[in-house]
């Protein structure tokens, strides 16, 4: 119990002081995860929608694989990307290893299946409901996809927030591809891992509390924005 109250005080202290180290890792964490989620959304939404609407042999199998990829072990993703980006690997010449860019790539890979699989489910459900109507009014395939994605916007927002949650909470992949370098690739989760390994448990837990609060705030903000937009635009 001592560690818990100690953690709480540590967290409050860091936050109220705007501790510069804390600010630095929070900003970097957000930069990386938000970028990853943005890219993953741009890839995952159309991918999921296409998978929901297209019909081709092996589609069912692909859907099963996509759903399974939601559970990709982050450390495996990290290792794979490390091997790809290493100088000894195929993409080594890009010099991306141990940079924030590599961390964005890793998190994107982890998040795309979540957004795509949930988008697929959302679009498939709406497709069942809307398809006759959309065809009856003469909607083309591209228009239909756009309509389904827009009408599914709340469920898709939830999917995107789920993706963000996965990204910001992830430590295994970003540790391997980022290297946890001070002032460069050290984010909240890797700092927590580091402080834990140093035995500074109260500090680690305090940082964890801050991370969770951050995630809650972002989710809350997204939900409020969503509801406000809904009221305005219906």
């Amino acid at each position: 119990m001592n560690d818990f109250s100690s953690a709480l005080w540590t967290a409050l202290d860091l936050v109220t002081r705007f501790d510069p180290d804390l600010v630095e890792i929070v900003v970097l964490s957000l930069e990386i995860s938000l970028t990853a989620v943005l890219v993953a959304t741009l890839i995952g939404l159309p991918l999921g929608a296409a998978l929901a609407l297209a019909r081709f042999p092996g589609r069912h199998f692909l859907v099963i694989v996509l759903n399974a990829l939601m559970g990709l072990p982050p450390v495996v993703v990290g290792l794979t990307i490390y091997l790809l980006l290493s100088r000894a690997g195929p993409l080594g010449a890009m010099g991306l290893l141990f940079t924030p860019a590599a961390m964005v790539i890793a998190q994107t890979v982890l998040v795309v299946p979540i957004i795509a699989a949930l988008a697929r489910q959302t679009v498939a459900d709406l497709h069942e409901e809307y398809d006759e109507h959309l065809r009856a009014i003469g909607s083309g395939p591209g228009q239909r996809m756009a309509t389904l994605l827009w009408d599914g916007r709340f469920r898709l927002l939830t999917a995107i927030l789920a993706g963000f949650g996965r990204a910001i909470a992830e430590v295994g992949a970003v540790l391997i591809v980022g290297g946890n370098i001070l002032h460069s690739t050290r984010v909240m989760t890797t700092t927590i891992a580091l402080e834990t390994s140093k035995g500074n448990l109260a500090l680690a837990l305090g940082l964890g509390l801050i991370l969770v609060s951050l995630a809650i705030s972002i989710n809350a903000a997204a939900m409020l924005l969503g509801e406000a937009a809904n009221r305005r635009y219906g």
């Binding site: 409901e129 809307y130 006759e132 109507h133 009856a136 009408d151 599914g152 709340f154 635009y233 219906g234």
Partner: peptide
Amino acid sequence: FQRPVMLRRSVAA
């Protein structure tokens, strides 16, 4: 249709 399909939007939309 017998059961109208309403998009998740406003009437005007």
